[in-house]
């Protein structure tokens, strides 16, 4: 019995010590960053619709569009990557300070616009408290309009209108235009249960592109399909030749009749 109580004391002591060590961890050198930097990538005020930044936790932001924030004066330099959501929005928690914002060349279905202050693609960013900022870019194409209808037999039809924004010597052709349908509101060329594409060369009129795709009845062991759900999400995307990232229309919820 005596032995037991000694052990109890010992464990109590250990517990105290452990708690002590926990509480001592609470004092850190820095507070966590809490300045919010939010906004959209836009063309003339319209957000650029792109691919979702990846749903896989291990590959967060993978293959999606991002820009870099650089800060001078902290030894070796490395960028903070800020990934964009599919509606062109972004948000980052940062420390106050002076940053340089760069959209790396080749990122996104657009070109970055030279900043008037720096005369280059570097955008100076001064953070002192929360900040909301829209970044203007120059897309190769924009999807002006995309209307969706669901016909009989669960066929989704899209009527889209695409306009070519860059028409000078930096212009690029359309590789293909695609209609994508998914069961959740994350829709792009990788996340879809039904899709249909039309090659750029086969498009006669950019302002009148029609596509249709049939939603399967049952896939993935009967978990997905019209048998299980009566609403879906659709959008139209444009793949530009020589550019990795596609540009999309808004995501629209379509309901089966």
């Amino acid at each position: 019995m005596k032995k037991y109580s000694f052990l109890n004391y010992l464990s109590l002591l250990l517990l105290l010590g452990f708690m002590g060590s926990i509480s001592s961890c609470q004092k850190d050198n820095y507070d966590a960053p809490k300045t919010k930097f939010t906004g959209h990538l836009v063309y003339k005020g319209t957000p650029i619709q792109i691919k979702n930044n990846g749903l896989d936790v291990n590959k967060e932001g993978f293959s999606a569009v991002y820009f870099e924030l650089w800060q001078d004066g902290f030894g070796k330099s490395a960028p903070i990557d800020v990934y964009l959501n599919q509606d062109g929005s972004f948000s980052a928690l940062l420390f106050n300070g002076e940053y340089k914002l760069i959209i790396p060349p080749g990122q996104g279905p657009f070109l970055s616009i030279a900043n008037t202050e720096t005369g280059s693609d570097t955008i100076p960013l001064s953070l002192n408290g929360n900040k909301e900022m829209d970044i203007e870019v120059l897309p190769y194409y924009m999807v002006d309009k995309a209307d969706f209808t669901v016909g009989t037999d669960s066929v989704v039809s899209a009527a889209a209108s695409v306009s070519k924004i860059i028409t000078d010597n930096r212009a690029k052709d359309i590789e293909y235009v695609g209609l994508y349908v998914n069961r959740t509101s994350f829709v792009d060329e990788d996340n879809n249960i039904a899709f249909k594409t039309i090659q750029g060369a086969d498009i006669a009129d950019l302002s009148n592109i029609t596509l249709s795709a049939k939603i399967p009845k049952d896939i993935s062991g009967g978990n997905i399909g019209i048998a299980d759900q009566n609403y879906f999400f659709a959008r139209v995307g444009v793949k530009i030749a020589g550019v990795d990232d596609m540009i999309f229309s808004d995501i629209v919820k379509v309901e089966l009749k």
Partner: peptide, 25 residues
Amino acid sequence: QLGNYYSTINQDIISNNPKIVKNPN
């Protein structure tokens, strides 16, 4: 992707030697 044609040069290499330019795309 087009960015896969030439692999990334790690940022610490560029930090050590700022004369190194990044690979495209």
